[in-house]
Amino acid sequence: MRRHLRLAAGMATAALLLPTLAACGSDSEGAGSGDSDNGQNADSGAADTLTIYSGRNEELIDPLIEKLEEATGVTVSVRYAGTAEHAATLMEEGEGTNAGLFISQDAGALGALSKAGLLEELPAELLDDVDAAHRGTEDDWVGISGRARVLVYNQELVAQADLPDSIHDLTTEDWRGKVAYAPTNASFQTFVTALRVIEGEDRAEQWLRDLQANDAEVFDGNGGIMDAVNNGDVEVGLTNHYYWYATAAEEGAENLDSRLHFFPGEDPGSLLNVAGVAVTAHGGQSEAARKAVEYLLSEEAQKYFAEETMEYPLAAGVTSPVEDLPPFESIEAPEVNLTDLDSLEETLALLQDVGMV
């Protein structure tokens, strides 16, 4: 039987390579619950057992893990926590890790672990079905679902013709007090990392300070932003595309006052990011972990992400059935190597400096 474990609070310390990841970073999906233990798995080296550190929450991923077990015959134990917390823990554990597989909410944490040499190179047959733009440059992690950064807006309060062309427009007087954002959210932090990579440290810092000075409203997560915009409590919000599509599927798009705006012209506000998966270099569970990766890229798993989470499937030949969802390739996203989003620690330090976290 699969075990569900919660990573103990406070495991990351100042001695970690990524200390601020654990201290400040959080995923909008949150950490799942379960029975806690010391994280040890006596069968970690066996070919038919696998310990997964999941930065995606239990409610989302557990049904898919059940399908994975059925398809592969592998017995799985899952530890749920935020992506940043898991990344810091893997750094701390190093060669002594009990994890065989890491499922990450975003590419930044995977890039950081790759840079530290803590991930195992994946065989070509597990990579070839995914575009090179959506996997690690060292071939040691691969994207399993995609998401786009968007601006959600209340169409009763904002005319389509008045929507901004760039995130930089949101710091002007026209948008004073009208913008919602979630600075402790992992996806926002990855977006800021991309902004640093694309436009440089100084301009990224200035944008953050200007956003604050423009009385932007702070929320804990994307769900709260979506509700606030739809209810008319705030005009626009920075979020991920799938929150709106999930709400529309439940309530009907015709019943929502909110709509999505994709920034044009390769603006950083239209960043395309991925959730990804990697086999750890020292977990001793390579065979089982590779089976899991293969399954997560299978048509069944890719359709699950497309239908249940409203994310973009990334494996070749699988398309999203979500109505009116723009094709992934049609989004005018900025050109950025996702592996270069590994400097989350610097991003969090910047967010601390400007007083956002």
Rank of each mutant, 00 (worst) to 15 (best):
M1C: 09
M1F: 11
R3D: 10
H4R: 13
H4A: 07
A12C: 14
A15R: 15
A15E: 15
L17N: 08
L21W: 15
L21C: 13
A23M: 14
C24L: 15
G25N: 03
D27T: 04
G32R: 00
G34M: 06
T49H: 14
I52K: 00
S54Q: 01
S54A: 06
G55S: 03
I61P: 03
D62T: 10
P63D: 00
E66S: 12
L68G: 01
E69G: 10
T75N: 15
S77L: 04
Y80F: 12
A81T: 05
A87R: 00
A87D: 02
A88T: 00
L90S: 00
M91N: 07
E95C: 08
G100Q: 02
D106Y: 11
G111R: 00
S114A: 10
K115V: 08
G117L: 07
L118F: 05
L119E: 03
A124R: 12
D128P: 02
D131Y: 06
A133K: 12
H134Y: 15
D139H: 11
V142E: 01
G143W: 05
G146P: 07
R149Q: 14
V150E: 01
Q155K: 14
Q155L: 05
Q160R: 11
D162E: 14
I167N: 02
T171R: 01
T171Y: 04
T172Y: 11
K178V: 08
P183S: 05
S187D: 12
F188Q: 03
T190N: 11
A194F: 12
L195G: 01
E199N: 14
G200I: 08
E201D: 15
A204V: 08
E205A: 08
R209I: 13
D210W: 07
N214L: 09
E217P: 02
V218T: 11
D220F: 14
D220N: 14
G223A: 10
D227P: 02
V229W: 03
V234M: 05
V234Y: 02
E235L: 05
E235D: 14
V236F: 07
Y245P: 03
A246S: 15
T247P: 01
N255P: 10
N255E: 07
R259K: 14
L260P: 06
F262L: 13
D267C: 07
G269H: 08
S270P: 13
L271I: 09
N273Q: 10
V274F: 00
G276Q: 03
A278F: 01
V279E: 04
T280G: 06
A281M: 05
G283I: 07
Q285A: 15
S286P: 06
A288L: 06
K291I: 05
Y295Q: 00
Y295N: 00
L296Y: 11
E299T: 12
Q302A: 00
Q302R: 03
Y304T: 04
Y304S: 00
F305S: 04
A306I: 00
A306F: 03
A306N: 02
T309E: 09
E311Q: 12
E311M: 13
L314E: 00
T319L: 06
E323N: 08
D324P: 06
P326F: 01
P326G: 06
E329G: 03
E332D: 13
P334E: 02
P334I: 04
V336M: 05
L338D: 05
L338A: 07
E346V: 09
L351T: 05
Q352F: 10
D353V: 06
V354E: 07
G355W: 09
